[in-house]
Nucleic acid binder design. Sequence first.
DNA 1: GGGAAGTGTTGACCTAGGTCAAAGAGCGGG
DNA 2: CCCGCTCTTTGACCTAGGTCAACACTTCCC
Lengths: 235, 235
Amino acid sequence: MTIPVADVAREARLVRGVIANLALFSGVAPGHVSTVARQSWALPVPRGAVIARRGSRLEGAFALAYGFVELALRDAHGVERGLRFVAPGQTFGEATALLGRACKYEAIALAESKLIVIPAAALFALMDHDARFARTLLMTLAQRELDLVAEIESATLHPAEQRLAGYLHSLADPGDCPAACTVRLPVSKTAIASRLDMKKETLSRLLRALVQRGLIAVKQREITLLDRARLKQIC
Amino acid sequence: MTIPVADVAREARLVRGVIANLALFSGVAPGHVSTVARQSWALPVPRGAVIARRGSRLEGAFALAYGFVELALRDAHGVERGLRFVAPGQTFGEATALLGRACKYEAIALAESKLIVIPAAALFALMDHDARFARTLLMTLAQRELDLVAEIESATLHPAEQRLAGYLHSLADPGDCPAACTVRLPVSKTAIASRLDMKKETLSRLLRALVQRGLIAVKQREITLLDRARLKQIC
DNA sequence: GGGAAGTGTTGACCTAGGTCAAAGAGCGGG
DNA sequence: CCCGCTCTTTGACCTAGGTCAACACTTCCC
């Protein structure tokens, strides 16, 4: 099976384009971006595919071109706990790839997706050539650390209802809507529940409770925030 | 009140010595270590002191010269969840200091301690001069990220007994003792309980259960692991 | 040596959230 | 339009671990 030359070129442009637009590479010289892009490649995955599993080695850090990915922990009996959703333009796996360690979590495509794989070696090389990039990467990891601490805080110090209220609140644009506004859940309620560290049944019951209190209205994945002030106050 | 010149010099030597011995600074040229040390200072704190509280700005990253420090989350009503114990020679607060963000957790001295404060500016400067240091710092943050993920995993996917068994197991030297060996809890059982995300009552009950099963023997803070194999198997 | 504070233990009871089971709802394909 | 999916809802019940309250042991300080 041969691949047409035109497709190879289009793919290379895609890889370079996605990398150039990552927050991680803002301020990096175009030449350096191209060097990294040449070492990277695209990885198309169908919906439901397991991109990385616990214990596997990552070939590099991942950037999401399009689609949607969930990072999740899973125990031996299939119980799942979502860690983070990855949206297009975001990256994941930097820490694992840079350390060359076995992956601690699973990465699952929640929608048909295209990923860019950036080998750790390319990142190390760029770090040596561009101190500013090194600093950006460092700041990204530092931010991730704070996010994880916040995650532990909400999971252990806040009850399920507060976590849900906080999540709903975070879905809406901050500047937006003084009164009511409608948001759309990015993924299935089952996935949301796992992300909020609760079972789907619990999520369903909590949503119903909020509806009955007149705080929200739910129509499948569309959720209307009717009283954002009170919602914020819950969390 | 004046401070004798000899004391100032001794203090400066302490600061430099502690920094030079940090894993973070291994491989850094002595001259660079001195430069960082000159910008850093020692901070003695009594047992029980709050070194950093939620929302405070850190003056820099902290290294522990001697003593013992606990990093913990605390909610509005005083409920505490321990994040990490910091032993001499270890550091904390890098991410918060580098990002210049408000601190997300509390740092409390569990024993009379001496800390070295290393301003973020000193770290940034060294990063620019020493790419290898930048890489070490990056790896440290990456490792911290994986540790936090492991923390979330154990807190949400493992029951309290497994967490305790895992902790006890981790206290013993890996190469050590084929059969029974005795370890000493580094801090009060109350602090251990918070670190393991359970209440002190629960810890007490679980310890008793392990004693009754003949897995351990407890004598105040001395714990004898009688059946390390079975203990490992629990977690 | 005796009380006061800090630290641990124990028992009785409670509750947030999980489990299990069954039944609706959307939805893409034939 | 019906079939067979996957996703969601709902009710009945359960349990790990938290809460409360009392008491015991350690320190250590006067």
